[in-house]
Amino acid sequence: MPALNEEGAIGAVVRDARALLQCDVVVIDDGSTDRTAAIAHDSGAIVLSLPFNLGVGGAIRTALHYAEREGYERVAQIDGDGQHDPLEVKRLLAELDKGFNVVVGSRFSAGYELSGSRRFAMRRLSSVVSRRLGVPVTDTTSGFRAMDRRAIEFFARQYPVDYLSDTVEALLLAADAGLRVSEVGVRMHQRTHGTPSSGRAKSLYHLGRLSLVIALHHLRGRSRNLGDTE
């Protein structure tokens, strides 16, 4: 559960998740300046406090490192701001049980609506990623995911840490590593606190960077194929 300055929401989210799922809750405090870490700890979470802000991708990689070292078999990633319903994690875990390594919780099947340019970008990403994975993934930037041990071990070593890369590029890497990816629909809560991370110019920049990432990914894939004898 990555969290940045979520002192208003984190306590309830942690308690909900613990009560509903009966599991360890790990909160990665991504350099918060408020009481996020203390509240999460008081609510019964294991708290990993980063000394400064690394972004969501960095926080997730930290958590995966932790899961790898502590020997967790499965992890689910949900937001610390309360917009993901912890109960829906069960749906992701059920999908892992079917033998998938990475499961993405999609916001779209539950009627999540986007405005024009954003929707266009999401569709493009979805088609690129789906083609690469061989299975349809509609919500490539969803931060509601679950992974099994194999995926944990793989991503603890190389999780993409840049904004949006942590979600989209991670799926491409999973495809390369031969991990099986699936998507299930999940219900969403309204955001209880905080604001969505958007901003038009920034979004454009990140989409541009992401295009480069995807292009590079194709190049790397080709050179790897040439080098491999498999």
Binding site: Q22, I46, S49, L50, F52, G58, H65
Partner: peptide
Amino acid sequence: IRRLAEEIALSRARPPKDDEPITE
């Protein structure tokens, strides 16, 4: 530096407050 920051977070991880055993 990112790797170091992660290591710092891991090495000062605190166990949860109420240490009741949790079952899957």
